[in-house]
Simulated scan of single mutants.
Amino acid sequence: MIDVSTRAARSLFYTSQAWRILREQALERDHYECVWCREEGKVTTENLEVDHIKELEFYPEFALDLDNLRTLCKECHNKRHGRFQFRKSKKMIEKNFRTDEFWG
Rank of each mutant, 00 (worst) to 15 (best):
M1C: 04
S5A: 09
T6Q: 03
T6A: 07
T6I: 08
A9K: 13
A9Q: 07
Y14G: 01
S16C: 09
W19M: 13
R20N: 04
L22P: 01
A26G: 05
A26H: 08
L27V: 10
L27T: 06
D30I: 04
H31G: 02
Y32A: 01
E33Q: 15
R38V: 06
E39Q: 08
E39K: 14
E40V: 02
V43S: 04
V43K: 12
V43Y: 01
T44K: 12
T44G: 00
L48W: 07
E49L: 08
I53H: 02
K54L: 04
E55F: 05
L56H: 03
L56P: 00
L56W: 06
E57I: 06
E57V: 08
F58D: 09
L64R: 02
L66I: 15
L66Q: 08
L69R: 06
L69S: 09
R70H: 02
C73S: 14
E75S: 13
E75Y: 15
C76F: 02
C76G: 07
G82R: 05
G82V: 11
F84Y: 13
F84A: 14
F86S: 10
F86A: 04
K88N: 07
I93H: 04
E94W: 02
T99M: 09
W103G: 00
W103T: 05
W103Y: 08
